[in-house]
């Protein structure tokens, strides 16, 4: 890749940092169970729009940083993010032309997959099984997806990330 291809790396980094900030921000108890998977959603957006650039490597590294930030096992989020980013890159040509509802549903499946992989890791390492509320963030995420999409798209255009 040439230097021009790296244009706007800081925008991607800043959006991921903002997503992580939203993940760490303390919330009242009643919305805590509904906190969307901000970081996973941001990664999906970048993987769909810049598939040649943001992919497995970005996702994996971000997952590792996320693991340190939230204190989960190292690799727990990295695994899920890497797999989800890979699927998003693989399917970006289809997902991008989907009508909005269908696109949101696809994103929902990706978010569920991320949750599922994290659940699998926590089960394999002997942590207690969470309640069904564990899956609530994916629904919240899907409901917020259109807004996140337009916000990131604005950002993307304003700073001409390529």
């Amino acid at each position: 890749m040439t230097a021009a291809a790296h244009k706007g790396t800081w925008v991607i980094l800043a959006s991921l940092a903002a997503a992580l900030f939203l993940t760490l921000l303390p919330l009242p108890d009643w919305v805590q169970d509904l906190r969307p998977q901000w970081v996973a959603m941001t990664l999906i957006y970048w993987a769909l729009t810049l598939p040649g650039r943001v992919g497995v490597f970005w996702a994996w590294t971000t997952g590792l940083v996320m693991d340190v930030a939230v204190g989960s096992l190292l690799g727990q989020h990295a695994l899920g993010f890497a797999v989800v980013a890979w699927l998003a890159v693989e399917l970006h040509q289809r997902i991008r032309v989907f009508p909005p509802v269908q696109q949101a549903l696809t994103v929902w499946v990706l978010l569920l997959l991320e949750r599922l992989l994290a659940l699998w890791v926590s089960g394999a390492t002997g942590q207690p099984t969470p309640t069904l509320w564990y899956w609530a963030p994916t629904l919240a995420g899907v409901l917020l997806w259109p807004w996140l999409l337009s916000a990131l798209r604005n950002l993307h255009r304003r700073f001409a990330v390529a």
């Binding site: 490597f57 994996w60 190292l74 690799g75 990295a78 890497a82 890979w86």
Partner: peptide
């Protein structure tokens, strides 16, 4: 892409095992 994601998954699982079993990743963390 496939080999990349396989490498990433393998690395993640190795990290998870190392972190869970031996707590050897203090420095990285």
């Amino acid at each position: 892409a496939v080999s990349r994601v396989l490498i990433a998954a393998g690395l993640s699982i190795a990290l998870i095992v190392a972190d869970h079993r031996q707590q050897r990743l203090e420095q990285l963390r």
